[in-house]
Design a protein around this nucleic acid. Structure first.
Lengths: 129, 129
DNA sequence: ATGTTTGTACTATAAGACTATTACAATAGT
DNA sequence: ACTATTGTAATAGTCTTATAGTACAAACAT
């Protein structure tokens, strides 16, 4: 089971930190399809936040078809619709890239600089995860 | 002179849209070093917002040494300190890249995918500018 | 000197974001 | 059936952000 943790100092809202950790857990294979997540209450106690904060995170991921929740049963990594269609996956990638390039160009960075820097990041591991 | 415009629908705050347009204007050469920007009042009237909204944008850019303001005179593209030191420039680039990769990886995109997609964006022009 | 033009400071308001409190509803085990 | 466990919904409180209204202060032009 994945180990969650929250950091007050980052300024990133709790529910979003949880979302990120679940997303990254799936992407990195630490969370398996069909696996049950902690109950909202259990995780709320463990992380010392309100159960609604957990529920909010789970809810957002459910809307994105990443989680499956059953009232009375629990919350699970979605087994049926977990994979995005290739088209929407590509759309998402493009939207991320567009935001990224907009910011970068406004700072005067060229796309070549971005590409070069990315190549140096290949072995990188997220700091807050 | 650069033409400003605000879009309510984007959800991006007015003052930030102004910041972005100035930043991008400089990066793209549409704003020359030493050039005077519209006065806070003039731009406020033109964009139909409060003059403090403009002042806030100018202020943030002044803090970043991108603009130079003189009370009673006007606001100008900073001629002396406009260029970041190479070290802080690199730091900024890395922080942008780190945020970007964190998000991307959580969606299951690989860095190679990002690089490939970036290469397709080389001729791209920002939509909202 | 005085008036106009410039940016600045202070205050208030509105809206939204985030989290918590509390009560409700569905499911499963017995 | 009943009880415990699960997620859900409605509400409220607190904080931050974004913008506006209004008055102030510095620089320039004449």
């Amino acid at each position: 089971m994945i180990k969650f943790h929250l950091d007050q100092k980052t300024g990133i809202p709790y529910y979003r930190q949880i979302i990120d950790q679940i997303r990254f857990g799936i992407a990195s294979g630490k969370l398996a399809v069909g696996e049950q997540l902690p109950t909202v209450r259990a995780l709320a106690v463990e992380l010392k936040v309100n159960l609604n904060t957990i529920a909010k995170a789970y809810k957002e991921l459910e809307i994105q078809n990443i989680l499956e929740t059953q009232q009375g049963t629990g919350t699970f990594i979605n087994s049926t619709e977990n994979k995005m269609f290739e088209s929407e996956r590509h759309q998402k990638l493009q939207s991320i890239i567009r935001d990224f390039t907009t910011v970068s160009l406004s700072y005067g960075f060229t796309i070549d600089e971005l590409i070069n820097e990315l190549k140096n990041q290949k072995k990188w591991k997220p700091t807050s995860m």
